[in-house]
Design a protein around this nucleic acid. Structure first.
Length: 556
RNA sequence: GCGAGAGUAGUGUAGUGGUUAUCACCGAGCGUUGCCAACGCUUGAACCCGGGUUCGAGUCCCGGCUCUCGCACCA
């Protein structure tokens, strides 16, 4: 099995670059840290992973795919909390020039300092004069704001509106909630997925594909009714999963037990953990290098109620590749508050509630002209009175003494039927870092072996995500073998969703090796017999076994 | 962002101021070869970018970019 080492990593990245899988972007202009190209081989891998991901979640049956812009107005990300959360206030020590997070310096006194404004932090720092953790001095420069989102202007000049490139795709699902809700005939649960780019202006991207400035992500926002106990079938996953729980530490448990004992706090989160595991395994990540880690309460994102990361072990150690968060009602509530729009779901009561109102209200035709601007407050007070109240009555409204007479009030006796209520759905969100997953699929598939005493590498990618589905090899490019091979190539290429490759240069062994290196699952070799009986040999990448088949019987 | 090291064909590398920049793999063409990186011939391809020092810079100096490592940061 794969044994991760720095040397192996160097050989792997060399191969990925040489063969056009993953390459530093814009390299002829010097390159940019944190930006990568998927090359001629990698491009289709990325596409197939995205498509498999979509297909995987669509099997739930209540999922729609949407696509929203990457350019996002300021107010959306302000409402979602990203403007605040993605901004760090940095302050530099005048003596040793070490930069520190301003809020960290004062959080002993103000534990909520990370939510302070620029002005408030400046004031608090000058009052507390915290000690520099690096040199012990307490002479500080000015606070600088550092935002990890790419900012831009939507429109030109003075009429331009401030915006950002989105740091996650999720907000598009929340801002489209009402449309999705109507699409599903206003019945929970349902989900919306989106596959697309996200952007974070990382301070120092490192570790190749692990931390990117522009990255591919795939997210599902699954909306549920918090009052319903959802039942899921956990019998599909009989094996134990490796869980690192906040309370229990590392334990091996079945998903069913983890949900029943409350280690996983919501059954839907548990079910999605199982689905996530299945997907990740399907695209070629070795299950023995997968674990789920629960976020500790103090590291949890601003919105989450419970959060599990799927982590994968590879050349860079354990890396979080998928985040599964129970976001509660945070996001919809935040956009509701910011916009005044209703982002809720209707829940009918089993039996309508009957509410009897028996009391008083004002006669606005007399209260209005008499009390003018106090009328509104008077109405509020009068409606609080019991049915037994009598008039005239002296009241103090906003510091003004008023006398309410009988002509100012009316008796009300109403029977009100309330058939249900509006509530904010809760959200369970699996968020996938596609690039990190592709990286680990490549990392785990890259197999270094020996063949007749020579180093030999095979990329044992699953068929589902291999870039080229089949390579056609003429044994020699002469005597009509090449003609037949080229004809076969063109015929196979006519199949939609099939990528066939023709390779006629170099010895046959060399060409097998080239195909193995980038993980082509099958090679078809055309030889002299093919000319007579219309058969070819099909050779399997992983076993090397060859079988002779008629061209018309090929299953491509 | 700070500190240290590094950057030479597609990949991996040699090269301590002085000829046409080394070697291997690699790619392409031709020949040979009856199925797993064979062989022969031919051929392709590089000093990260920009300044400076010098008669002369891949080599020395400065700045930038990128990579690696450590620190910091990390929904």
């Amino acid at each position: 099995m794969e044994e991760f080492s720095g040397d192996r990593l160097n050989r792997l990245t060399g191969m990925l670059k040489r063969r056009g899988v993953l390459l530093p972007a814009f390299e002829i202009h010097g390159g940019v840290a944190g930006l990568y190209d998927y090359g001629p081989v990698g491009g289709r891998i990325r596409n197939k992973v995205n498509q498999s991901w979509l297909n995987h979640w669509l099997t739930l049956g209540n999922i729609v795919e949407i696509s929203s812009p990457t350019i996002t107005p300021y107010s959306v990300l302000d409402a979602s909390g990203h403007v605040g959360e993605f901004s760090d206030y940095i302050i530099q020590c005048n003596d040793c020039e070490e930069a520190s997070r301003a809020d960290h310096l004062v959080e002993d006194v103000y534990p909520n300092a990370d939510s302070f404004s620029f002005e408030k932090l400046t004031k608090v720092i000058s009052e507390l004069k915290p000690i520099c953790p690096a040199c012990g001095s307490s002479s500080w420069g000015n606070i600088k704001s550092q935002n990890l989102m790419f900012s831009t202007n939507i429109g030109n000049g003075l009429s331009g509106r401030k915006g950002f490139l989105r740091p996650e795709t999720a907000q598009g699902m929340f801002t489209s909630f009402t449309s999705i809700y109507r699409h599903f005939r206003e019945r929970l649960p349902f989900g919306a997925v989106q596959v697309g780019k996200g952007y974070r202006n990382e301070i120092s991207p490192r570790q190749g594909m692990i931390r990117l400035r522009e990255f591919n992500m795939a997210e599902l926002e699954y909306f549920i009714d918090p009052a319903v106990n959802y039942e899921h079938d956990f019998s599909i996953w009989e094996d134990k999963f490796t869980l690192i729980s906040e309370d229990e530490g590392e334990i091996d448990l079945t998903l069913k037990d983890a949900v029943q004992t409350g280690i996983i706090k919501h059954p839907t989160v548990g079910y999605f953990m199982g689905m996530t595991f299945d997907f990740v395994r399907e695209i070629g990540i070795n299950p023995i290098h997968i674990r789920f880690r629960q976020h500790e309460s103090n590291e949890m994102a601003h919105y989450a109620l419970d959060c599990w990361d799927l982590e994968v072990f590879g050349s860079f150690g354990w890396v979080e590749c998928v985040g599964l968060a129970h976001r509660g009602c945070y996001d919809l509530e935040a956009h509701e508050k910011a916009t005044g729009e209703r982002l809720r779901s209707w829940r009918s009561f089993d039996k309508p509630k009957i509410v009897n109102i028996d009391g008083w209200t004002i006669d606005s035709s007399t209260v209005g002209p008499t009390f003018k601007s106090l009328a509104g407050n008077i109405k509020e007070e009068i409606e609080k009175l019991s049915a037994e109240s009598t008039f005239p009555m002296d009241l103090v409204i906003d510091g003004n003494a008023v006398t309410i007479e009988e002509k100012h009030v009316k008796r009300i006796q109403i029977e009100q039927k309330i058939s249900g209520e509006w509530f904010i759905p809760h959200v369970v969100e699996p968020a996938f870092g596609i690039d990190r997953l592709i990286w680990h699929a490549l990392d785990h598939s890259y197999t270094e072996t020996e063949k007749s005493g020579e180093d030999y590498t095979i990329l044992s990618l699953p068929k589902a995500i291999s870039s080229i589905d089949v390579t056609i090899l003429p044994l020699f490019e002469k005597d009509g073998i090449d003609t037949l091979a080229k004809k076969l190539h063109i015929t196979l290429c006519k199949n939609r969703n099939l990528v066939a490759n023709y390779d006629g240069s170099g010895s046959i062994g060399r060409r097998y090796a080239r195909a193995d290196e980038i993980g082509v699952p099958y090679c078809l070799t055309v030889d002299y017999d093919s000319l007579n009986d219309n058969t070819v040999t099909i050779r399997d990448r992983d076993t090397g076994n060859q079988k002779r088949v008629k061209i018309e019987d090929l299953e491509f």
